[in-house]
């Protein structure tokens, strides 16, 4: 089962879970930060690898990427990518810290992005688990801050043995006037997609 073979109904089912997951994630972030964070999912898409890199602003643009693997009955990989500009805003909102250069991205910044990746992945997996009755277990996130092409390429490599497409959830975080954008990539293992759709009753 490959992404490019999905029917509109199957896509809608996956998108709906994405929306519910975003709601959960916003609540979790708000609790963590003790301030109100809203989150929307303006776009959920299935894209070929080269376009995935393009939506990040080109392969050379500086981004932060949090990566984790999900074990269990339906294994998958998850990558959360935030462009440089949004990383700065994130640091401002979450740590009250100004980012002036790449050196300002320190261990604390890494932890923050890792934690956000954790929360987002957890929220998404929770809603996926609720609908499918499957159990998902996520590893601790790994982090990189570098060219988007290099980071995304590294993750897609694992998946490249299976498909040339990725499931992409665009996420926008809102705190009062400030808007932070990130992209959430979900890469199910070879049989995981089928298993999930089967449980959702749309296989």
């Amino acid at each position: 089962m490959r992404f490019e073979d999905l029917s509109p109904i199957q896509l809608d089912a996956l998108k709906e879970i994405g929306n519910i997951g975003a709601g959960n994630a916003a609540t979790a972030l708000s609790t963590l930060l003790n301030k109100r964070i809203d989150m929307t999912v303006p776009k959920i898409d299935i894209l070929p690898f080269n376009e995935v890199v393009e939506i990040m602003g080109g392969a050379e643009s500086l981004v932060a990427g949090g990566y984790l693997e999900v074990k269990g009955e339906a294994p998958m990989s998850i990558l959360f990518v935030i462009p440089e500009k949004s990383v700065s805003l994130f640091m401002k909102i979450l740590l009250g810290k100004e980012m002036k250069s790449i050196e300002d991205f320190d261990e604390m910044s890494e932890s923050v992005i890792k934690e956000v990746t954790n929360i987002l992945a957890g929220s998404y997996l929770n809603s996926l688990g609720m609908f499918t009755n499957l159990v998902f277990e996520a590893t601790v996130p790994a982090l990189a801050y570098d060219m988007s092409g290099a980071i995304i390429g590294n993750v897609l490599q694992l998946y490249g043995e299976v498909s040339d497409y990725s499931f992409v959830i665009e996420s926008v975080f809102l705190e009062e006037e400030v808007e932070v954008k990130g992209h959430f990539f979900l890469l199910p293992g070879p049989d995981s997609l089928y298993k999930i759709l089967e449980r959702l009753g749309v296989s």
Partner: peptide
């Protein structure tokens, strides 16, 4: 052939480069 991600217990992604 770089290893983009630091510190992780994740498996194959570390060695692919």
């Amino acid at each position: 052939g770089a290893q983009m991600f630091s510190s992780s217990n994740t498996s194959d992604i570390m060695k692919i480069g």
